[in-house]
Amino acid sequence: MSSREGKHGGVQMTALYAGSILFMAAAVIWGLLSGSAELSVGEIVGILLKNITGYEGFFDGQKNIEMIIWNIRLPRILLALLVGSALALAGAAFQGLLQNPLADPYTIGVSSGASVGAVIVLFFQVEIAFLGSYTLPLVAIIFSFASLFLVFGITKAASRTYANETIILSGIILNSFIGSVISLIIALSSGDQMREVLNWLMGSVALKNWGHIGLFFPFFAVGSAVILFHYRELNALALGDEAAQYGGMNVRRKKLTLLISAGLLTGAAVSVSGAIGFVGLVIPHLVRLVTGADHKHLIPLSMMIGGGYLVLADMVARTIVSPQELPIGVITALIGAPVFTYLLIRERIKRRKMAC
């Protein structure tokens, strides 16, 4: 590569990072401005500065307006930002790790495990005294890890090398079984229970507060840090297990580390927002079209785009049929399914042309 090409590539990548940061920031600002209570940018900045610094002079308006922004809109937007980032990051990691463009955070059954945990809590009205409203997300996280270890157990029994195909097949088996359990619970539910379960399964960040962010953030920080740190290993694994092993990598150990980290992100995200599809499937695909397959850039850019995308999807979900709200999973599916179909057809056409 010439110095001119390298310089051009560096400028292009800088522009991509700047554009992604602006997209994410614009989504957050737009989300804060959208809603029944109309406010100016200056008023919102004043409310944020007042609550961050404690200085009353930044905003002397109505207390109920301040409460709407600080206690309702901001936690909801930040949670959507974190969940979108986590799902997109997990999707990019799964696709590189399993060498499968159709892999996403739901591939290995972690999301299904979290879902069945949440559905059991809703169906049996379980509430642990010292956890209160956090019973559901914590139980969902526990079940997500249980499903992850079940997948590992099935895979180890069938393939001691943790072959990618075996991991995916194990996930499909577990997803099918858990799906039937959830269907059984829904069939046994009363009208109100069924509505509550279905709403959760379609995904939402409504009625979430700072406590949910506090619950989710440690899992997000640990899972993200591990995957970001292992971008070189993901590049090697994307070329195949044998190539990575010849390069001196302990393939089994690295696979387990990355699978647990991506599963941690998925389970924690699903536990606080419900099942939100297509973010981890579509966003890494779109980013890969621009950046290529280098995980050094694919991972952080997917995080930023995924976070901003879910904030915008949530804004649409809560405003398009106002005063009613749509589940955010409906919006992501309506957008994601056609986009992914287009990408899939485009990739097949491209491969046919290359073969000819």
Rank of each mutant, 00 (worst) to 15 (best):
E5D: 13
G19T: 06
L22R: 04
L22C: 11
F23G: 12
A26M: 07
A26I: 02
A27Q: 01
I29P: 00
G31V: 03
L32H: 02
L33Q: 08
A37D: 08
V45E: 02
N51G: 11
Y55M: 13
E56S: 14
F59G: 03
D60Q: 15
D60N: 13
G61M: 02
K63E: 06
I68W: 09
W70T: 08
N71K: 14
R76G: 10
L79D: 03
L89N: 12
A93M: 11
N100T: 14
D104Y: 00
I108N: 00
G109N: 03
V110D: 08
S111H: 04
V119D: 00
V121P: 01
V121F: 07
F124A: 08
Q125T: 03
L131D: 08
G132Y: 07
S133V: 15
L136K: 13
P137L: 05
V139P: 00
V139N: 05
L150S: 12
T155Q: 04
R160E: 13
R160F: 10
R160G: 11
R160A: 13
A163Q: 14
N164A: 15
E165W: 06
E165G: 05
I168W: 07
S170F: 07
G171W: 07
G171F: 04
I173T: 13
F177L: 10
I182N: 03
S183F: 09
I186A: 06
I186P: 02
A187H: 11
L188F: 11
S190V: 04
D192V: 06
M194S: 12
R195F: 09
E196S: 14
L198Y: 08
N199A: 15
M202Q: 12
N209C: 05
N209M: 12
G211E: 12
G211Q: 11
H212A: 12
F216H: 03
F216W: 03
F220Q: 00
A221D: 02
A225E: 00
I227A: 05
L228K: 01
H230N: 14
R232W: 11
E233T: 13
A236K: 13
A238P: 02
G240F: 05
M249C: 00
V251Y: 01
K255S: 02
I260W: 04
I260R: 04
S261C: 10
G263S: 01
L264H: 01
L265V: 09
T266C: 07
G267K: 05
V270Y: 11
A275V: 15
V282M: 14
V282D: 07
H285C: 01
L286N: 03
L286M: 12
T291Q: 05
G292E: 10
A293G: 09
L298E: 01
I299C: 11
P300F: 01
G307P: 01
L310P: 00
L310V: 04
L312R: 05
M315K: 09
P323Y: 10
Q324G: 11
E325Y: 02
P327G: 09
I331S: 01
A333D: 02
A337F: 12
P338D: 13
L343K: 09
L343T: 12
L343Q: 07
E347L: 12
K350V: 13
K350L: 10
R351D: 15
R351G: 08
K353T: 15
